[in-house]
Amino acid sequence: MSSGAERPTWTSHLRRQVASMPPEKLLPDTQPVYVASWIYVFGALTIGAFIVVLLSGAVIAMAGPSWWHHSSFGHFINSTHLWSTEFFFAFMVIHLWGKFFMAAWRGRRRLTWVTGAVAFLISIPIAFTGYLSQQNFDSQWIGGQAKDGINATGAGAFFNVLNFGQMLLWHAVLLPLFVGLLIAGHVILVRRRGVVPPLPGKGGA
């Protein structure tokens, strides 16, 4: 049943939010002139690297723990996972530098900045739990060292770096889910608010 005045329910709110983002706004064909700059490329490169991280991680997860040490294909996928992560962080940090010096939180874009910054911060424990999930002496040594630091914070009771199953699930499920949702929200906010323009020049352009 429909009525002229929408009741303030969560479904009507969600419907309005979805209606405010039609496909042509979500996937635009053109961008403002100032976007034709290399510094605007690094956000998309970060997402590209993140997709490679997820795909290579999915292959690793499907084959089960430690197989990547015992086959050439496993070595290849393991290296792909490592290097896509390296590129993910490098692209993300260059993107962050560019947006910081551009003061990208201007023009009601504070939430866009915050979602990006939080996604970066959560990506760091994803990498750390990845080191703990390597299934080799390196991960054992890192776990042994990290436990003292984590215990010193008081978090060791519920975040046990020596618990491989717990670390693997944080690394492969929970944290990537948070970051994936944050990146999706970040992109929607970029589409909603638009790409931030460069700072005005000395001439007040």
Partner: peptide
């Protein structure tokens, strides 16, 4: 890479879009 990204001209966009 950051310095190059800021200074290098983006190819194929000499004319404003």
């Amino acid at each position: 890479v950051f310095a190059l990204a800021v200074t290098l001209k983006f190819p194929g966009h000499e004319e404003p879009v």
